[in-house]
Computed example of a mutant assay.
Amino acid sequence: MKVISLCPSNTEIMEFLGLTHLLVGVDDFSDWPESVKSLPQLGPDLSINLDLVEELQPDLVLASLSVPGMEKNVEGLEERNIPYIILNPQSLTDIENDLIKTANALNMPERGQEAAEQFRNRLENIKQKGASASWKPKLYWEWWPKPVFTPGRINWLTEVSEAAGAENLFKDVELASVQTDWDDVKSRKPDYICVAWVGVRKQKVKKELIINRPGWEELEAVKNDRILILEEELYCRPSPRLLDGLEKLQHLLHN
Rank of each mutant, 00 (worst) to 15 (best):
K2G: 10
L6D: 03
T11I: 06
I13A: 02
E15Y: 14
L19Y: 09
L19V: 05
T20G: 11
H21F: 14
L23K: 10
L23N: 03
V24G: 05
D27H: 02
S35C: 04
V36H: 06
V36Q: 06
P44M: 14
D45W: 12
L46I: 11
L46E: 12
S47L: 14
L50N: 06
V53F: 08
Q57A: 11
L60F: 05
V61S: 04
L62I: 04
S64A: 07
E71F: 08
N73L: 06
V74E: 09
V74W: 04
L77N: 02
E78I: 07
N81E: 10
I86V: 13
L87V: 04
P89K: 07
S91L: 06
D98E: 08
L99S: 01
L99K: 01
I100F: 06
K101Y: 11
K101D: 03
T102V: 07
N104C: 07
N107Y: 06
N107H: 08
M108F: 00
P109D: 04
E110K: 03
Q113R: 05
Q113T: 03
A115Q: 03
A116Y: 01
A116F: 02
Q118K: 13
R120N: 13
L123V: 09
L123C: 07
L123W: 04
G130S: 11
S132L: 08
W135H: 14
K138Y: 03
K138A: 14
W141F: 09
W141H: 06
E142D: 05
W143V: 08
P147I: 13
F149S: 08
R153T: 05
R153C: 09
I154T: 12
W156D: 00
W156N: 00
E159M: 04
S161V: 02
A164W: 00
A164V: 01
E167N: 15
N168W: 06
K171A: 15
D172K: 15
D172W: 13
V173M: 13
A176C: 13
S177M: 15
D181H: 09
D183L: 10
D183M: 07
K186T: 04
R188Y: 14
K189S: 15
P190N: 13
Y192W: 12
V195S: 03
V200M: 14
R201T: 10
Q203G: 11
K204W: 08
K204I: 12
K206W: 13
G215A: 10
V222A: 07
I229H: 08
L230C: 05
E232K: 12
L234N: 02
Y235N: 03
Y235Q: 08
Y235A: 09
P238K: 09
S239G: 10
R241Y: 13
L242K: 11
D244L: 15
G245Q: 14
L246Y: 00
L249Q: 09
H251A: 15
H251S: 15
